[in-house]
Every structure is written in structure tokens, then in C-alpha cells.
Design a protein around this nucleic acid. Structure first.
Length: 264
DNA sequence: CTGGGGACGGGGCCC
DNA sequence: AGGGCCCCGTCCCCA
């Protein structure tokens, strides 16, 4: 009988908050329908797999909302924190990105030049918006390397909010929707062959991973690893308050919530 | 309540 | 490019 946790939790609201740490797309999950359609790679008109699949480019200006501004708190446009000469009040670094030999301009209106066309903008945000008009040249528009990396092509899953920066990663993820590896014994489906092999061990009873200390055997290497922690005096996960150690993160979490530092 | 085991998911790396 | 594998992690159950 399948256990409830065998069903992907993607579609439930039972899972605690951990996933919210993963991305700001958390709220999307609330809109995922219960009968979630299977994902599939984009296909050509004739139905064949689109080997030339063109990802959605997150920097594509045509797709940007009108209110888009790169000057968001998470991605400041140009004032990059770093080693600065704090003795100079004007050394904010804003105007010197990419042209550090230029002296700072005293006039704020002159501080936001487009390095590509020379246009002067009134604010960093305005400059960033303007620079997007050059984005066919990508990094040439004055974006620094980190920003350029962050705005790489996003390969988006067709049926969930996740996106990846490579088609291979996206394909791997999509397997978690299509679950192509099916157990011939019980019919349960898995995203990857080795997951299926691990599952098959639950039918065969095979336990290839043995503990060197007590000879206890496990079907899953991760479970052996967790078990090995039980032989250790000092365990991997330590409470920051009482310094007690635990073999598993979940045990530490329980500890901090229930007994040691409930407010933590 | 706590600790540990079982089963599984997913990203990243290597071949 | 794709598969195999490793590692880390989660969730549930049970003693």
C-alpha cells in the first residue's frame, strides 16, 4: 500500500516552510491545481522534441513588465558592496562601474551615463532601464559579470514555477513530473532509474550497505550514513544554544523547537 | 518526547 | 547530452 509521502508533496500544503527558502516562487504553489498535468518538454509543431528549444530569456525586454526595475533590493544595479575608500564621500562606486579611471562626477544628473551610447540618466534605475535597450549586446550594456550571470537564459518548467539555467537540468527536473521509471512489481513510478533500483530493494530485501561498526545493513546509502552518526560521540548537527549534537537535522530541529530554544 | 530506521526527492558532479 | 552516482535532505513511522 502506497504511503502518503510517496506522493509528491508539490501539490499539497502539508509540507512545512522549508521550500519557501528555496525561492520567492513559493506563493505559486498555492495556485497549482490538484490534478496537476504531466510536464513535457516543448515540442515542435510536428510533435517531435524541440532540440532547438529556445528558452524564455529573463532579460528579454519584450517580456519585461512595465514596472520592471533592476534596481530591486536583491539586485542592486550598480552600487556593488565591496572594498571601498570610505574616506571619499563620493566613492559610492555607482558611477565607476566598468570605468574606474574616471573621476566621480559632482553632479548627480551626470552620474548615470550609459557606457555604450553616452546617454545620461537621472537615476540608477533609469540607467538600468535604458541599458536594457542595448541588451542584444548583453553584457556590453554596462552590466557587471554577476548580473550578467544572474540574467542568463531561464529554462522554465512548463507546469511548475521552477526554472533552470540549462536544458539538461530542466530535463532532469521534468522527469520528476513524468516519472518514467516504473516498478514492475507494484507500479510505483520514479523520476530516475537509480531511485527505482533503490525502491526495488524494498521488494527484494537486498541491503548492500553495511555498517562497519555493527554490521547492520541498509538498502540505502543515505540511511547508512545517518546510521553511522549514531555511532559517533559528537554528531553532525549541533544546537547553537546548548551545544548538544544530533545525528539528523530533523532531530536538531525538533530539539530547538520543543525543548531547548523554542524561540529560536 | 526522543532517537533511529525506511523510503524517497533533487541538485550537482563525473564519465 | 545523458545516465549513473553521490550527497544532502525530507518525511513518516515506530520503538
Amino acid at each position: 500500500m502506497p504511503r502518503s509521502f510517496l506522493v509528491k508533496k508539490y501539490f499539497t500544503n502539508k509540507k512545512p516552510n522549508y521550500s519557501e527558502l528555496e525561492s520567492q516562487n513559493g506563493p505559486f504553489s498555492a495556485f497549482i491545481p490538484e490534478h496537476y498535468p504531466l510536464a513535457e518538454l516543448p515540442t515542435k509543431v510536428d510533435g517531435s522534441l524541440a532540440s532547438t528549444y529556445t528558452p524564455t530569456l529573463v532579460w528579454a525586454t519584450a517580456t519585461l513588465p512595465i514596472s520592471f526595475t533592476p534596481a530591486s533590493p536583491t539586485t542592486p544595479p550598480s552600487p556593488i558592496p565591496g572594498p571601498l575608500d570610505l574616506s571619499s564621500p563620493s566613492s559610492s562606486g555607482e558611477e565607476d562601474e566598468g570605468r574606474t579611471s574616471d573621476p566621480p562626477s559632482p553632479d548627480p544628473a551626470d552620474r548615470f551615463h550609459c557606457a555604450q551610447c553616452g546617454k545620461t540618466c537621472s537615476s540608477p534605475a533609469a540607467l538600468s532601464r535604458h541599458q536594457l535597450t542595448h541588451c542584444s549586446a548583453g553584457v556590453d550594456a554596462g552590466l557587471n559579470a554577476a548580473e550578467n550571470t544572474a540574467s542568463r537564459a531561464a529554462f522554465r518548467c512548463k507546469h511548475c514555477p521552477k526554472e533552470y539555467n540549462s536544458l539538461g537540468a530542466l530535463k532532469m527536473h521534468i522527469r520528476s513530473h513524468t516519472l518514467p521509471c516504473v516498478c514492475t512489481t507494484c507500479g510505483k513510478a520514479f523520476s530516475r532509474p537509480w531511485l527505482l533500483r533503490g525502491h526495488i530493494r524494498t521488494h527484494t530485501g537486498e541491503r548492500p550497505f553495511s555498517c562497519p561498526h555493527c554490521n547492520r545493513a541498509f538498502a540505502d546509502r543515505s540511511n547508512l550514513r545517518a546510521h553511522l552518526q549514531t555511532h559517533s560521540e559528537v554528531k553532525k548537527y549541533q544546537c547553537g544554544t546548548c551545544s548538544r549534537t544530533f545525528s539528523r537535522m530533523s532531530l536538531l530541529h525538533k530539539h530547538t523547537v520543543s525543548s531547548c530554544c523554542p524561540t529560536a
